[in-house]
Design a protein around this nucleic acid. Structure first.
Length: 471
RNA sequence: GGCGUGGUGGCCGAGUGGUCAGGCUGAGGUCUGCAAAACCUCCUACACCGGUUCAAUUCCGGUCCGCGCCUCCA
């Protein structure tokens, strides 16, 4: 019996039981990347968290519909594409492709929809129209359209921010005079010369959409006016998500999102990641340093999503080591021959582990507990194998359970765990060493061991014979 | 200034009003010709000061320190 899924809801700051709008379905929206550069590992922490959420929902039997937007028009994309004298589309296409390559490397399951902002301008214009008609928005002197937060009394309910008490002076901008209130945000930005050839026609003249309206328009189109889960980085909570709520609820007159989940930041060696500090890493950087997707993913799952994650290369090394141990463990399970040993305790052991794993994940995605369950099971099963207490059927059942765990965590590749092809030369040497051992000629055996080491292989002896492993 | 969040053993990182996290590292041991792998044991922490309580790392108050947001940064 799986326990009930509970999530910490930023809206209300409570651990809430998950009750979807439609039984058995989970509809979620995820703030995706702004495609003006390669995403960094901090970004990927959020995407891995969202993937974990998605996989957990599926593990608990929900049909998931996920939307992740691609912001391919904003100040930064326009600025950098012009810098490179490329069209906006050609420029963003590079980073869209890179983004999807990276997702794949981290085994992040594809969302059902990846709408690009530039493909949904009409929907955004439509939404702005509604807001104007209903009196929530206005056109300012600069011809841009702004949302008037004064018209939405609940403004601040997500981030718990009272605009009255905010620090004055920091938001001063040159165009501020145009707005009724400094906190009003742009729904539609009128064209200016910095935009170059990037503009769309609208009832208010040429221009481009504001950032916030993008998410409202696209989520509405694919998920409906009220949907279940909205995720994002903690820094998107304000103002981005607060603004989404204001626009969407004003336009539709109904609740926008039921559960808001926010992921905290990744820091590097205790400091915020920044290019100037030299601690800024993209996924590509880590792959070049010899870490694979599973290892990076393991590191990114290393702390609860609502806590800061301290990224270190020490953690990467640890992940590598632990994954190697699990790999060996799976291999050992697969090598078990049919036997008549007693495995009567295995089903109970596995059922208990599955239950505890599910309980951990149901509790607001407590991965640390889930990992502890897996380590415990690994140890128990290793012990049984040490004592020849596990037969082939039992081993298969254990592997099956780890496959289920991996459907949620996606770090193992249970079935990819197999022996590397051993070159003939290595095999021959190892066999000769085995003969030497049988003849108690340990000097020769050790010499061959050294030869193998030079070739990059280690040989392990067991009661069954020997096994060659790549160093 | 406002709001929020956190300080756990050498390191990473869960959790709880009263026997357990877990992982890594280190030490010792079993096994092994030697090794490796695996297993066992040990290293018993909860920022500081008060308070509540039979009992606080866990609840309350205060102090110190870190971090985030209030600037279209996940």
């Amino acid at each position: 019996m799986k326990s009930k899924l509970k999530f910490f809801n930023t809206l209300g700051r409570n651990l809430d039981e998950f009750q979807p709008v439609s039984d058995g379905e989970a509809r979620m929206y995820t703030c995706g990347p702004t495609v003006y550069n390669y995403a960094h590992i901090g970004n990927f922490r959020a995407y891995v968290f969202e993937d974990l959420l998605r996989r957990t929902l599926k593990y608990f039997g929900y049909k998931v519909t996920q939307v992740m937007n691609l912001t391919d028009v904003d100040d930064k994309t326009i600025r950098d594409s012009r810098k490179k004298s490329m069209s906006l589309n050609d420029f963003t296409a590079i980073y869209k492709k890179a983004f999807f390559d990276d997702l794949k490397a981290l085994k992040i399951d594809p969302a059902e929809y990846y709408p690009a902002a530039t493909d949904h301008i009409p929907e955004m214009i439509e939404l702005v129209k509604v807001l104007l008609e209903k009196g929530f928005a206005y056109q300012a002197e600069d011809r841009s359209i702004y949302f008037s937060i004064a018209k939405f009394p609940e403004y601040g309910k997500l981030a718990r921010i009272d605009m009255e008490n905010q620090r004055a002076g920091v938001r001063i901008k040159t165009d501020e005079y145009a707005k009724d209130s400094v906190a009003d945000f742009a729904l539609w930005k009128a064209w200016d010369e910095n935009d170059g050839d990037v503009w769309w026609d609208s009832p208010w003249g040429k221009g481009r959409p504001g950032w916030h309206i993008e998410c409202s328009a696209m989520s509405m189109k694919y998920l409906g006016k009220t949907f279940d889960i909205h995720t994002g980085g903690i820094d998107n909570m304000f103002p981005h998500h607060e603004d989404e709520i204001a626009q969407s609820e004003s336009a539709n007159g109904c609740r926008y999102v039921n559960y808001w989940l926010h992921c905290d930041h990744l820091i590097v060696n205790g400091e915020k990641m920044s290019k100037s500090a030299g601690n800024f890493f993209t996924l590509r950087d880590l792959l070049e340093k010899g870490f694979n997707g599973n290892e990076v993913r393991w590191v990114l799952l290393g702390a609860h999503y609502r806590k800061k994650l301290n990224f270190t290369f020490d953690a990467c090394d640890q992940a590598k080591m632990q994954l190697r141990r699990f790999g060996e463990f799976f291999l050992r399970l697969k090598e078990i021959k049919e036997g008549d040993c007693v495995c009567s305790t295995v089903p109970d052991l596995l059922a208990k582990a599955e239950q505890e794993f599910a309980d951990a994940m149901a509790d607001d995605l407590n991965v640390s507990e889930a990992f502890a369950v897996m380590f415990q099971l690994q140890r128990d099963i290793n012990k049984m194998m040490d004592n020849d207490e596990l037969n082939q059927a039992g081993a298969a059942a254990v592997l099956e359970v780890f496959r289920k765990f991996d459907a949620v965590l996606a770090i193992f590749d249970v079935d990819a765990a197999k022996e590397e092809a051993v070159p003939e030369e290595v095999l021959t040497l190892a066999a000769r060493r085995q003969d030497a051992r049988k003849n108690k000629d340990f000097a020769t055996a050790d010499t061959i061991r050294n030869q193998l080491k030079i070739l990059g292989w280690v040989v392990e002896d067991s009661s069954e014979g020997f096994r060659c492993k790549k160093i």
